[in-house]
Design a protein around this nucleic acid. Structure first.
Lengths: 187, 187
DNA sequence: GAGATATGTCAATGATGCTGACGTATTTTG
DNA sequence: CAAAATACGTCAGCATCATTGACATATCTC
């Protein structure tokens, strides 16, 4: 249809093999940066994900975190124990609802999360440096478009809902405005 | 430097949280498409990766495949057995070097690989549809830039080295030009 | 013939996910 | 107030996908 005279197309258009494969390799190298750093602490990728989202959403509840990561509480608790034992994440009891556990990165946890985020950032910066400035917002739009439509509102709230906390401020008080509607003050 | 008067920056620039998190969520949803399809066949993501790269590089040797996937032969053989037993991948003995095993997708394997690739393609097409046409090559450049510099030549050869095979042609003969220097005729 | 190479296999282990079943504390509801 | 729902934690078992280490076999190269 688009290319007359090329003969019958057996089963639709040719797949975008370049994007498929580049996405696979890009993600693998992207994660490898942090993996090397985490190895020294005996942490895995799961620990990193938990720490990252807790760092980015201080006061997050367990249920909200499970919803972000889409894993079970059994899977979460295994790595959460390592993170709390290691002093990277602090758990407090909610005030308005004492059943809730409010999660927060300790100053040490903030430092680690920030270090790892910078590693990832540097890779993005290296990738974007040789390209026109306009590519950065286009990359954001492209990646957002890759996310399930149903998930997009939640992801947008998560990504642009609030500025990151300051690792030097002792991990208490309100470390930022509400995001996800999952935060409250701790005791 | 770039923003005078904003006060001291404690430890470098703020990370690109948006790209970091969008990349995470985008990859997760990207892989979820194929995962659902593979579940019916009792295959996992590892089976998919193996089938995909064998489909894309007919005549690939085991060593070359291990180098692409960066896994051990023990990990590979577990899923390879499932794929050969299921009639998705065919293994032949090399001619010029009979130690080598030349891997090739069967017609059934080609169909499955192509179906899964199209699933992934559709997600890319949905993501790119609302964006300017210029974004597609920029997305390619961006993703390529995310890959380790040392790996880039190999990835480029893998991605743009040869056209994909035709699933209707019986899986024999030379199904395309050499790529990676890893292919040869089978007995 | 010796040694390197390509591959396959056995055994054990680790990381990360899952389901199902309970238990406990706390809040909400009737 | 009692019952039900909610938030969380835990125990037990299982699946997938990766690892390391050791060893066997076939084949090629020198």
């Amino acid at each position: 249809m688009a290319e007359p005279g090329t003969g019958p197309e057996p089963a639709g258009e040719a797949p975008l093999f370049d994007l498929i494969e580049l996405f696979f390799f890009a993600y693998r190298d992207f994660t490898a940066d942090a993996d090397r750093q985490l190895e020294a602490l005996q942490f895995g990728r799961a620990h990193h994900r938990v720490l990252h989202f807790v760092y980015r959403n201080p006061g997050l509840t367990v249920a909200a975190l499970l919803d972000i990561l889409k894993i079970t509480k059994q899977s979460l608790n295994r790595v959460m124990k390592d993170l709390t034992d290691g002093g990277f994440i602090e758990v407090r009891t909610g005030v308005s609802d004492r059943r809730r556990r409010l999660l927060q990165a300790t100053p040490e946890g903030c430092r680690l999360a920030l270090d790892l985020a910078r590693l990832h950032s540097e890779r993005f910066e290296r990738a974007l440096a040789p390209l026109p400035d306009a590519v950065r917002p286009q990359a954001v739009a492209f990646l957002l478009g890759m996310i399930d439509t149903a998930e997009r509102p939640q992801v947008e709230a998560l990504v642009w809902g609030a500025p990151p906390p300051d690792p030097d401020r002792p991990a208490g008080r309100d470390a930022g405005p509400h995001r996800l509607g999952a935060r409250e003050q701790a005791a």
